[in-house]
């Protein structure tokens, strides 16, 4: 095949390129790729290792069982602490250093109970401006057990 020497060289060039590709590929593919599927197994650990912001109501109740007992008896029993108090994991980790700020009930309560025609009809809702005229909700209601004691008689 003296006449096709140039073709053999071209084929060799392609083959060399292909082998180089395979070798480099072997080296650069991240470790653990393909262990659980077509992805880098370490990504699972990376994502699981992200920090949390919300401690979860279980953590809150470990210290604040007094508040939890009040909450559990009222209408808001299903509402978790951080739904109103915001993310408190930093407080849970350093209770003395990081202190939560009490939310303003005028804003907080309205975010759920402000009347809206798309809300489920059974859900208690008010037009806050008519209902309280700008007075903070907690002037009358205890957020952890919001039903007014007088309501029982009505």
């Amino acid at each position: 095949m003296k006449e096709a020497v140039h073709l053999v060289r071209l084929a060799a060039l392609f083959a060399a390129g292909f082998v180089a590709f395979l070798v480099i590929r072997q080296m650069v593919v991240p470790a653990g790729f393909g262990k659980y599927g077509h992805f880098r197994a370490g990504a699972l650990d990376d994502i699981r290792a992200r920090p949390i912001s919300y401690a979860g109501h279980g953590t809150c109740e470990a210290c604040h069982d007094d508040q939890h007992n009040v909450l559990a008896k009222g209408k808001h029993a299903q509402v978790s602490c951080e739904a109103c108090h915001g993310p408190q994991n930093r407080h849970a980790e350093e209770p003395d250093k990081v202190k939560p700020v009490l939310p303003d009930t005028r804003v907080l309560c309205a975010s759920c109970h402000e009347s809206n025609s798309a809300k489920p009809k059974k859900f208690p809702q008010v037009v806050a401006s008519d209902h309280s005229g700008g007075e903070p909700c907690k002037s009358c209601h205890v957020p952890h057990n919001p039903k007014l004691s007088t309501e029982k008689g009505q």
Binding site: E3, A4, V5, H6, L7, R9, L13
Partner: peptide, 18 residues
Amino acid sequence: TLGSQNISERSLQIDDRV
């Protein structure tokens, strides 16, 4: 040229076929 100066009739025929 990949180091091949061969442009004989035969080699060009091969090139044409390939």
